[in-house]
Write a protein that binds this DNA or RNA. Structure first.
Length: 493
RNA sequence: GGCCCUAUCGUCUAACGGUUAGGACGUAUCCUUCUCAAGGAUAAAAUCAGAGUUCGAUUCUCUGUAGGGUCACCA
């Protein structure tokens, strides 16, 4: 492999027609990792030859998406490079030059038909259940190409092509795969068929990574490479990403959304990378959690799979959690503060100390990528920054053994006693284990639920929260006792 | 319909032609427990079907079936 000792050059070449979804990002990741591993060059090129479908702002969005997952490039639209420009609309002269070579060789001709006429041919072929082949309608005496008609490639060598693909091995196709396709559109822009090839040549691209939908058009490319006397690069065809059931191809509904949506939902970029590269590849051992660097080192294009893999959000959630655990304490704090709503950040109780204290508690409670966002939205973070509001009846444990008669007074007494126990603990000893040690005998005496639930509720105001000892430590002696006194007065004492 | 690609637990996948077909996610049960999480333990769960080659097939060949791609002045 790579015996020529040629420097490896790969590229990712999206069209600016919207956001980048996970399929595109994975392609970029593979191309990038391969170049990085072999100290090669990775290029970001933008294929903006379809002016009708172009979406304003796409390029910036694509760049932001790639940077988020940690992909960097040596040459590209935004940074230039020795073989620029990297925007196809600025390279029209190159495409024309090669188109002219084909015209001169008699291997390209102007398409004289109207769109309607071609559409009629297509319709007919479809009705007769035959593949549509333009070459069946090739004009006898095509007009001279003046740039206003589409320019078509003239396939002269109709044969069954056989070629090699790093992933799929030997591939072949019937002659039906060969046709007179369009090189230059009537608006003067080239089609992908021509432009990608010229750019790859001029930019020295050695390996093309792209999804399997291009297998069917490879014979056409091969015919064009031959006509242009270009040695094709190495083909690395990637398997498709399927919907979670592993059967259908991934659609928008199943998660083919903007990669940056995952960022907004709380997924870590390294988790996203880890997850995406594992759809269609694995290192062959039992490792599952990878940093980008580990991935690059382990990546081997010969281990890319042939079959499509499903997009499984649960696995992504798990991977995200594993990466969350690997963060340093400071990084975890930063991660959490990023998702705390502005309304809470404005409060005087929003301090570095409280963030520091609640970080491990929140981290432990994040199971899914979007949990941090959900917790923020559902108000599960609010009580950390302000006194909870709740109904006094909520203070009672659901299996309470407290007699109904004067239950408010009894519970208040329990809490008063708890407060007195807590008061005995010194500020420096006000820590989870010590608190538990102090409170436990009393809890055993009156029934654990009947005192622990109310304490927890007085502190959080929520049915679901971390355990009371943890909360007591987080809030500290003074604030904790204050919250407990609030509960006591709510009970009428 | 033509051409092409693919096929191992529900999902992602491992397995020089020889394994009790392995791991992970998820699921279930149990432990822990004031709640919700987390954590620990255990379990169920797969070679698409049929022929052929072979002493022996998940692995090689063929056929069928299923899924996917493609047949654009989209990439």
């Amino acid at each position: 492999m790579n015996t020529e000792n040629k420097k490896i050059v790969t590229r990712f070449a999206p069209s600016p027609t919207g956001y980048l979804h996970i399929g595109g990002v994975r392609t970029a990741l593979y191309a990038w990792a391969y170049a990085r591993k072999h100290n090669g060059t990775f290029i970001l090129r933008i294929e903006d030859t379809d002016k009708a479908r172009e979406v304003e702002g796409s390029i910036d969005h694509i760049i932001e998406s790639l940077k988020w997952v940690g992909v960097t490039w040596n040459e590209g639209v935004d940074i230039g490079g020795p073989n620029g420009p990297y925007l196809q609309s600025k390279r029209l002269a190159s495409y024309r030059k090669y188109a002219q070579i084909l015209v001169d060789k008699g291997l390209a001709y102007a398409d004289p038909y109207t769109t309607e006429e071609v559409e009629a041919f297509r319709q007919k072929a479809q009705e007769e259940k035959r593949p549509f082949l333009f070459r069946d309608h090739r004009p006898e005496n095509p007009p001279k190409w003046d740039g206003t008609q589409p320019l078509r490639f003239k396939v002269t060598n109709i044969k069954s092509y056989q070629w090699n693909d790093v992933v799929y091995g030997s591939l072949s196709a019937g002659t039906e795969a060969l046709d007179d396709f369009i090189l230059i559109k009537s608006d003067g822009y080239p089609t992908y068929n021509l432009s990608h090839m010229i750019d790859d040549l001029e930019m020295g691209v050695t390996h093309i990574m792209r999804a399997d939908e291009f297998i069917a058009s490879t014979p056409k490319f091969l015919a064009l490479y031959e006509a242009l006397e270009i040695t094709p690069p190495v083909f690395v065809t990637l398997p498709p990403i399927m919907a979670p059931d592993g059967k259908k191809k991934l659609g928008k509904r199943d998660g083919a959304k903007d990669i940056l949506d995952y960022k907004a939902e709380g997924y870590l970029p390294e988790a996203m990378l880890n997850f995406l590269v594992f759809i269609g590849w694995n290192p062959g051992d039992e490792r599952e959690i990878f940093t980008s660097e580990e991935f690059i080192q382990s990546f081997d294009i010969s281990r890319i799979h042939h079959s499509g893999g499903g997009f499984n959000v649960e696995k992504l959630d798990w991977i995200n959690r594993e990466h969350l655990k690997k963060l340093s304490y400071e990084e975890q704090e930063e991660y959490i503060s990023k998702f705390i709503p502005d309304s809470l950040k404005k409060l005087p109780t929003y301090t570095n100390t409280i963030i520091h204290n609640i970080t491990p508690v929140i981290m432990e409670r994040i199971a899914k990528g979007s949990d941090i966002v959900k917790m923020a939205e559902d108000g599960e973070l609010t009580y950390f920054f302000g006194k909870p509001v709740y109904d006094k009846d909520a203070l009672f444990f659901k299996n309470s053994k407290i007699p109904e008669d004067n239950k408010y007074e009894l519970l208040a007494n329990y809490l008063v006693h708890a407060v007195s126990l807590l008061t005995d603990i010194t500020d420096s000893d006000f820590m989870k284990d010590k608190i538990k040690e102090k409170l436990w005998p009393y809890a055993e005496e009156v029934g654990r639920g009947d005192i622990l639930w109310p304490i927890r509720y007085a502190l959080s105001g929520l049915d679901k929260s971390p355990d009371p000892f943890t909360l007591l430590e987080i809030f500290g002696k003074e604030e904790s006792i204050d919250r407990l006194r609030n509960a006591i007065s709510l009970l009428g004492k």
